[in-house]
């Protein structure tokens, strides 16, 4: 019985570069529960993306133990444990939105009728019902990113890993997508790992905020959010929210005092 979906035990990840080794992650311990919404926040170079990629088995830790769904990350990847969303939508211009959302399903060998049903369901989930026949260039940036989230959801992985998915969008679109993402998380009960460098975004979305700092990349603080799961946008003006944001900011500052 694994209580945790993701556990990291003293992970190191070192890149060998021409300028010598770069310690992207050093001594990272972390546990993530089923259904957690976990944000990784920190300045660039703190290893938050590397940690997410290690969970996705897109990078391999050089030391320590990392487990996803009770397996090593690569086995979990092969078992299609997670959907990954990048900063750019990365939709194929030669496929329609439905074709793009269906791409992982085709690759994983889902039957045609099942594919159509799943595509319709996830497009509805990200509020893109009726846009399946459009091509990516016919959609706005925010809609394209929603389509890429639908693509990550289509094959029903329990874990959704998102690497600054709204980083390239303007603030108004971002607010709306954050609200939609929370709604989606409540509906699906997925475990979400979310990389960001926006404090309000991390505080608004997360049940658990992982504060990281660079050189070497490490976790300086893990904050469990006391905020309720129902979060209207104006929760950001409440004293609890502001106190939590303050705590995250303090955590980030502590990380910086090292250098």
């Amino acid at each position: 019985m694994t209580a945790y979906v993701i556990t990291a035990d003293q992970i190191d990840l070192t890149f060998q570069t021409a300028d010598g080794p770069v310690h992207a992650l050093k001594g990272v311990d972390l546990t993530i529960n089923q259904g957690d919404f976990v944000s990784f926040i920190g300045p660039s170079g703190c290893g938050k993306t590397t940690l997410l990629r290690a969970i996705a088995a897109l990078e391999a830790p050089t030391a320590g133990r990392l487990s996803v769904n009770g397996m090593d990350p690569d086995a979990a990847r092969r078992a299609r444990a997670y959907g990954y969303v990048f900063q750019a939508p990365g939709l194929y211009p030669w496929r329609t939105i439905a074709g793009n959302v269906g791409l992982p399903l085709e690759i994983m060998g889902f039957a045609k009728a099942d594919r159509a049903a799943r595509i319709a369901r996830v497009l509805d989930l990200v509020d893109l019902a009726g846009f399946g026949g459009k091509y990516p260039w016919q959609l706005s940036g925010g809609m394209q990113q929603r389509a890429s989230i639908a693509r990550a959801l289509a094959f029903d992985a329990d874990i959704l890993l998102m690497d600054e998915p709204f980083g390239a969008l303007d603030e108004i679109v971002r607010d709306r997508l954050n609200e939609a993402l929370l709604e989606l998380w409540r509906k699906t009960g997925k475990t979400i790992g979310f990389v960001t460098h926006s404090i309000p975004e991390a505080v608004y979305l997360s049940t658990k905020i992982v504060v990281m700092s660079p050189r070497p990349g490490r976790i300086t603080k893990v904050i469990d959010s006391p905020l309720p799961t129902q979060r209207p946008l104006d929760i950001r003006d409440t004293p609890e929210f502001i106190a939590l944001a303050h705590e995250v900011r303090e955590g980030l500052r502590e990380g910086h005092s090292y250098d």
């Binding site: 990629r53 996705a56 897109l58 990847r77 092969r78 299609r80 997670y82 959907g83 990954y84 990048f86 750019a88 990365g90 194929y92 030669w94 791409l103 992982p104 085709e106 690759i107 994983m108 094959f155």
Partner: peptide, 24 residues
């Protein structure tokens, strides 16, 4: 790299990557 990482996250085979991504 991002497109290839996506394919990897779906555990796509080399021929799937070729026909669906590299060739187009």
């Amino acid at each position: 790299a991002m497109q290839l990482d996506l394919m990897r996250s779906w555990n796509a085979s080399r021929s799937q990557v070729f026909w669906r991504l590299r060739l187009p």
